[in-house]
Design a protein around this nucleic acid. Structure first.
Lengths: 170, 170
DNA sequence: CAAGATACGTCAACATGGCTGACATATCTC
DNA sequence: GAGATATGTCAGCCATGTTGACGTATCTTG
């Protein structure tokens, strides 16, 4: 692992010390940044009587309509029993519908109902508010740096899956 | 915050569409980056029979020795009952010790034992490995951008607390 | 076309780590 | 001395993860 160009050192500070501090800074900011962003939707989730697990499912189904159950399982990296509980609740509340896959009839394709889409949009609006404020403050160059570092945290084996979220399914 | 409405038509890709995609990209990368980084220590935690909650406490106590219980509560943003359970377990395993505050004898100052420090160092090494690989791949400029965006996600009211982690207690 | 693999669902039991509410004690501050 | 503060603790509940075992429909392949 190559050496990182440390921030122009305060006089005589050990490179090893700075290195540790840079790593800890990243760990902490990632922790606080992530938790505070997710806090943005807490109020609305409580109002709806839903939890974070429900939101994650809603989010990915919104992001990629006709996602299969298996794909969602891989994205969330939980067991099918856990996901089953969440999907059942979303279905019972008319937030999500499934239809049988056209190519492979074993698959179930997931979609939001209008009601589900409206809820997801409302939750997303909160995330957008927080994150776009941070983007604006930091500036576009920082945003691309932010992306690059985070991409580097995603293991090779998962990267394609994550990038594919940005592609519409045909 | 400006209004950023629905993704509009594809041809000539609307700036509004790009904006939503940029926000979703950030949400997803933050989610995957954060979870994959924390995955780095899963194996070791299981081996130790500890959970993530224990690690968070260990981490912050390592980061700022003589932290008080109240400060740790604010950092973790959980109830004292939840934290009490965790601290009791860490104490029972000789990973953490407390001493009465010198200035205010109601306070308990938290410190890692040698054993606790050794464990935290081992866990930190895993985080460092992952995160410094991401830093190196992305480059120093990206790293500062990464920090800036994340700082923007931390509400004003919490920012001082987070920054103060980088200062030694006197 | 039969056999096996795959996609999905579900039952039951359990672990972790949050939460609320109610109280107790020691100590500090005014 | 009275009240605020820092900490601890009992008891119970909830959300969301886990393992293991099975069942059914459907696809794939020899």
């Amino acid at each position: 692992m190559a050496d990182i160009s440390r921030p122009s050192a305060s006089p005589g500070a050990s490179p090893l010390f700075l290195r540790e501090d840079e790593i800890r800074r990243g760990v902490e900011l990632l922790y606080f940044g992530y938790t505070r962003l997710t806090n943005a939707i807490d109020q609305e989730l409580v109002k709806q009587g839903l939890g974070r697990a429900h939101h994650r499912a809603l989010y990915f189904i919104a992001r990629q309509p006709d996602l299969t159950v298996g794909e969602l399982l891989r994205l969330l990296a939980i067991t099918k029993q856990s996901l089953g509980r969440v999907l059942k609740e979303l279905h019972d509340r008319d937030l999500v519908v499934t239809k049988t896959g056209a190519l492979d009839r074993r698959q179930k394709l997931l979609r939001l109902t209008d009601k589900g889409a409206a809820l997801e949009a409302e939750l997303f609006a909160q995330l957008r508010e927080k994150l776009s404020a941070a983007y604006v403050t930091a500036g576009q160059e920082s945003v691309t740096g932010f992306w690059h570092v985070l991409e580097g945290l995603v293991p090779e084996s998962d990267r394609q899956m994550v990038f594919d979220l940005r592609k519409d399914k045909t």
